[in-house]
Write a protein that binds this DNA or RNA. Structure first.
Lengths: 220, 220
DNA sequence: TTTTGTGAACTAGTTCACAGCT
DNA sequence: AGCTGTGAACTAGTTCACAAAA
């Protein structure tokens, strides 16, 4: 491990927004890396993602001193550091709860695989779906099999794509099976047990936010 | 219009987070309304959505004085006010760009219709898809038809569910056709023309944020 | 008495500005 | 000379606390 990472990563106090920006920086670095750019300043990286350079330096400083004064950041090295910080340097097994349209669409989503996320199974309660496979060969299993799959495949992330009424029950189940990170697509908010991280993607909330903008007639 | 809405809605300065919370309040009010509860205090509503009562009073105060001191908020009236503020008191026509798995799944999503959002057409460039319909009878059209559909159906919101490489081009097209509110599912960020509101749902960013949590080993 | 609406205090997050390193 | 890393200043957003209304 590089000496640049010696700093204690006082992760408890890294703001959520910083972690999201790290992903954005990484995307930009992938482009620079592919283009063969050897180094980039915080100002240039900021330009590239529409941000202020100071916030980039602050964000990176939570995790170490990756920059070289007078030069900037070494692109391949910073890329590697960010991939490691974000846990993208290894495969992560994912299960999807709910094999309806949304669950199936997510199972086929290319962007996930490219980042090392591997959907190993879908789960459903509908007997007509159980036992089948997606076009990519991902099996659709009964909920009863969840624990076994999680344990055997080392599943670390669950995606919840079930109807709203079943979401809390399903969350409690995946948590009971040992999964501690959940991406939730069901609307309405869940009671989240301590020690578990749930990220909500609430499509209705997003659309209503746009609707507000239209209703308010903001033309700025 | 009720006299409670007389206040100038200085909408320019309503924080984005406030608008999202309004949707959350509305959801909670729908439940209370269905249960026949006549009035609710900011403290009770806060409890219901896991927030502080003061922020609810502040949020609502941007739009008027809806409460009654000593009593709270009249549920049916506040529900109506929020529906109007969020533009949910009328039908909104929506188009979906990209009739792949994600686009098709979104077209079938029940939660949208319940809020007055009506998906009137999907658009794609794949000739094998053009001319077909979804199971719900929503037509899949060629991009050339976009302008006509937008104008004829009064489309106000576009959902972009095309591959990343095509997203900017598609955004520019829908904006050129007069749509000013866009829900974007493609990753990577877009150049957004002035006067247009784009809400990004970046699935990769969401998963990477969970991955960070796992990599950092936060068990709090 | 109860609860709103709101100024004041507080907190979190961003930007500025510059000392210090290469 | 140029750019990072970081304390200080600033900005936005939340919570407190209480006067005023019903």
């Amino acid at each position: 491990m590089s000496d640049a990472t010696k700093r204690a990563p006082v992760v408890e106090q890294v703001p959520e927004q910083t972690t999201t920006r790290l992903s954005v920086y990484l995307r930009c670095l992938e482009r620079l890396h592919a283009a063969g750019v050897p180094a980039v300043s915080s100002a240039a990286l900021a330009e590239c993602c529409g941000l202020n350079g100071a916030i980039i330096r602050k964000d990176l400083a939570y995790f170490g001193e990756f920059g070289v004064r007078g030069v900037g950041y070494h692109v391949p090295a910073l890329r590697q550091h960010l991939r490691q910080i974000l846990g993208l340097d290894r495969r992560s097994a994912v299960v999807i709860l709910g094999a309806g349209r949304l669950g199936s669409a997510l199972a086929a989503y290319r962007g996930f695989r490219d980042d090392g996320f591997e959907v190993v199974a879908l789960f459903d309660t509908d007997p007509s779906r159980i036992g089948s496979s997606t076009r990519d060969g991902i099996p659709v299993c009964a909920l009863d099999d969840l624990r076994a799959v999680v344990e055997r495949q080392g599943v670390v992330i669950a995606i919840i794509a079930v109807p709203a009424g079943a979401a809390q029950e399903v969350l409690d189940l995946v948590v009971a099976c040992g999964v501690r990170a959940v991406l939730n697509f069901s609307p309405g908010g869940l009671r989240v047990p301590a020690g578990v991280k749930v990220k909500n993607v609430d499509l209705t909330l997003s659309l209503e936010s746009l609707s507000f903008f239209l209703a308010a007639g903001r033309g700025d």
